[in-house]
């Protein structure tokens, strides 16, 4: 714990993320009224009326409530899609790296298939075909973001596979799954964790971009949607785009700080110096 606090970027990132998490989880306590309901006169400037610190939009909806509820979508999408794509990527990468040969070749060509199509375009098409909802958005983002994980894990596994302690495991008669799960993957955890934390940030941005384009879940308010809906009024009602924009920036920065913090905490030298 002390180590985490000494690591400034990790501490700041975790604090910011905790704050956002609290807002997301308790959004219905702070704002019992749905963010889609109009709460005041339209287009109130921030701080012009008590109870509406961030003003209201063109339909009189509370911007602050929208941001609070939007945090739910952003965090859900970020975390869930990262879990899915990391699972997928680790599995494919580990199998390809460990077994090599034809299997590796097939899996890597398959991975390249996904890598050659522009990620965002593929996500847009996927969501558009399967009608926008939280589930399809999460799946679309997972689908486009696993290939780099697979590549990373494959490389790590290939290099770890040639290490002597893995050879020693083979000589001791450990099973293949034992080698992968006990020897190889635990030693590849740090780069995977670092990459995963940065992927959360990318996923949040992708979701915002999809919502901005009108491909968000219609039943859930999201930051991207808020910016998209108010983009025509950018000059008359700046607060409608700026505050959700800031929310995105703060969340992404927080997640990136955490990723960077992990990278520092998990680098091999620091790891070697750890006293057990």
């Amino acid at each position: 714990m002390k180590n985490i606090l000494k690591n400034t970027s990790l501490a700041i990132g975790l604090a910011l993320l905790a704050l956002i998490l609290v807002i997301a989880v308790f959004a219905h306590v702070f704002y019992p009224v749905s963010p889609w309901q109009s709460a005041a006169t339209p287009l109130l400037e921030p701080f012009s009326q008590s109870g509406l610190p961030l003003g209201s939009d063109m339909l009189g909806r509370d911007v602050a409530a929208g941001i609070a509820y939007g945090a739910r979508v952003s965090l859900t999408v970020g975390v869930v899609s990262t879990i899915i794509s990391v699972t997928l990527g680790v599995t494919i990468g580990a199998v390809a790296g460990f077994y090599g040969g034809v299997l590796d070749n097939l899996l890597m060509r398959f991975t390249e298939l996904f890598q050659t199509v522009p990620q965002f375009a593929m996500a847009v098409v996927f969501v558009a075909i399967f009608s926008p909802s939280l589930v399809t958005i999460v799946l679309a983002i997972s689908l486009v973001s696993w290939p780099p994980v697979a590549r990373l894990v494959r490389g790590e596994v290939m290099s770890l596979k040639s290490r002597e302690f893995v050879k020693a495991g083979i000589v001791l008669g450990e099973s293949e799954s034992g080698l992968i799960f006990r020897h190889i993957l635990p030693n590849a955890v740090s780069p995977i964790v670092v990459m995963a934390s940065l992927m959360v940030a990318t996923a949040i941005l992708t979701e915002s971009a999809l919502s901005f384009l009108g491909l968000g879940d219609r039943n859930m308010i999201s930051w991207g949607y808020m910016i998209g809906a108010s983009r025509t009024m950018l000059r008359d009602a700046w607060w409608l785009s700026v505050f959700p924009g800031l929310a995105i920036v703060v969340t992404v920065v927080a997640v990136n700080l955490i990723g960077e913090g992990f990278e520092k905490a998990l680098n091999p030298q620091a790891h070697g110096e750890r006293k057990a």
Partner: peptide, 21 residues
């Protein structure tokens, strides 16, 4: 330096073979 898994205790490294057998 590379023939022992850095994340396993010595006991775990030594018993891995017999346990697998």
């Amino acid at each position: 330096f590379s023939s022992l898994n850095p994340q396993h205790t010595v006991a775990r490294s030594i018993t891995a073979g017999p346990l697998a057998a």
